[in-house]
Design a binder for these strands. Structure first.
Lengths: 340, 340
DNA sequence: ACTTGGCACTCAGGCTAAGGGAGTGCCAGA
DNA sequence: TCTGGCACTCCCTTAGCCTGAGTGCCAAGT
């Protein structure tokens, strides 16, 4: 069937181009891949693929390179995620097992992923909204300041110093602390707001201003700003591709410096724990329209708590990259789950 | 005096090269700067400067560019720190004044500095060893785990989860907490070790294993790992110079990714609160031998608590860069001091 | 209906040659 | 000590040429 061969040609083009980074012509294609037909036939197929918008020529009389759409078809229909080698798996294990706390897990994971893929890796901290409260502490600091520490079951610890305009006694603080603990411990952070808000009414009118300031700050911490954190590694790998995206790494670096952008990259794909691949212009983020982003969720227990992934050139080795991302994500999930 | 003119020539060469990024010849020098002599005279001076190793030719029949030594002389003897414009000062103020906590101050400062200088900026968190203890909290987490939170007067908050092999009662934890607080609060962190170590003896033999595990961990937190933190911004500015350091940004990016390297860069210059400038090969860090590093300490009250600065090409505008670094550092110091 | 070999055509990149231009070093004279 | 003059060096740009890889199309073969 001729349609099959065309796709085989596309696959060969993608694989060859990814390996060599050079436009691939009909002759070299039949030489390197056993397609069983002559270059002329390949040329016809190529013309058809070009009509479909899957490949393109940088200039007349050059070979073809895949378009974003071409990669899309390759990823969706022509490739399989490549499992890691035993050695690689062992490397992951030994590298991650030494981690002592959540920061450490995050940092090691992201470094590891960037080294495995030779690309820029990113990882989102376990989402607070998807965690449950393990512990809440309030500590008076004097000067009408209170330190709030919130510990989630994922191991995440958020702290925040709250300035309140009202003096607050140690006794009140202790009562408030124990009430908040009773009400909030063990429930999901996203459900904390209604329960905690109701507490204000329990306190006497003159205590309420301070209490509500603290509670407001607590809710703000949970919902806002610090809610999502993301960590990056391997930006020096950008230099390796260099010429790819129009000769300058600048816009890519700029985009990656913006936490908001990273969060969008990771957030856009909240498609559970299955791999998400966005290729070239499929990324709506300006500056990253000639990169591909491979992300996947990682879970604690059986709930996806956040996303991680890599950013690389569109001409990346998708099967391997997807394999690495998935493997590291699973391992991170396992660690998070085991360590209670 | 002929020596004076030679230095004037060097200054002109540096300024011209920094502005144009092109080797500067004798003719254009007399045209652009009023040196009052002919090109031929300048050529003689240039030959002398070259003999002294202050300037060099990329190739015969090209203009001269300053050497690292040339920049050194320029910085030490031929230039003055350039104060910021009123507008810039106001920008600093309005940008930094909104900061709500220490993390925020650090992040805003480093971003601001990278934008002012168009270079890579870095800032070290206030050193723990130079801070005093404001508060120490111990929180039992169950599972033989204890969360320790340490708050320094600089606003820094360090947390750490401690795994202990021994069960520890809430009561013991409370007693330990209050003893540690009594002993440690208000004293410099560097002096904490001897005082706290002595506490172990106060507890009964069967309590000691848990107590000493916690204390050991406390001391480790203070002295080790998390002790120094550093934050980076503006790496995308690297792309702007690009060709400078041998055509590749890679080694520079790699070096900047290493926290240890950054700490060395900032640490090497613990010369109080005066500006430190290290030019080219004066930086012993591999990968940064063709960059210059400008750092300065920032103070809380009248004690220098950490360093901040920028990394850029050797052909940077030293007077302006030094001005920006110093100005931001002073402002950060003021904020830290004011907010108690 | 595909496939194939042949053939003319295109074009990027490498190589060479020539010329301009910016800059230098040196020297003799003021 | 400074200056103008002069010969010399090289980098870089431009232009032209050539080669090789690759294409598209066509007519013939299966």
């Amino acid at each position: 069937m001729t349609e099959d061969r065309r796709l085989a040609v596309l696959r060969a083009i993608v694989e060859d181009y990814v390996a060599t980074h050079e436009p691939v012509g009909s002759r070299s294609l039949v030489e390197r891949y056993s397609l069983g037909v002559s270059p002329a036939t390949i040329r016809n197929d190529m013309a058809a693929l070009e009509d479909e918008g899957l490949i393109a020529q940088p200039h007349t009389s050059a070979g073809r390179i895949p378009t974003d759409q071409g990669y899309r078809v390759f990823v969706d229909r022509l490739s399989q995620v490549k499992p890691l080698s035993g050695a690689e798996k062992r490397a992951i294990g030994s590298f991650l097992d030494g981690a002592v706390d959540l920061d450490d897990v995050m940092q090691r994971s992201v470094r590891l992923l960037s080294q495995l893929t030779h690309q820029v890796a990113m990882i989102q901290y376990p989402s607070l909204t998807r965690s449950t409260v393990r512990h809440i502490e309030l500590v008076g600091l004097g000067h009408q300041r209170v330190l709030m520490v919130l510990i989630a079951d994922t191991g995440r610890v958020e702290q925040r110093v709250i300035d309140i305009q009202f003096p607050i006694s140690d006794d009140l603080l202790a009562r408030l602390r124990s009430r908040i603990s009773e009400v909030a411990t063990g429930i999901r952070l996203v459900d904390v707001a209604p329960k905690v808000s109701g507490l204000v009414a329990e306190f006497s009118p003159d205590e309420r201003p301070g209490v509500s300031a603290i509670i407001a700050s607590l809710l703000e911490t949970v919902v806002e700003r610090h809610e999502e954190r993301v960590m990056l590694a391997g930006t020096s790998n950008l230099a390796a591709f260099g010429e790819d995206w129009g000769g300058s790494v600048r816009p890519v670096l700029e985009a990656l410096e913006e936490q908001m952008v990273l969060l969008r990259l990771l957030g856009e794909s909240m498609s559970g724990d299955s791999l998400s691949v966005r290729i070239g212009h499929e990324n709506e983020v300006e500056g990253l329209t000639s990169t591909s982003v491979v992300t996947v969720g990682y879970a604690r227990g059986d709930e996806v708590v956040a996303q991680m992934g890599v950013v690389g050139p569109t001409r990346m080795d998708y099967p391997s990259t997807m394999g690495s991302v998935r493997a590291v994500a699973r391992y991170v999930g396992r660690i998070l789950t085991e360590q209670q």
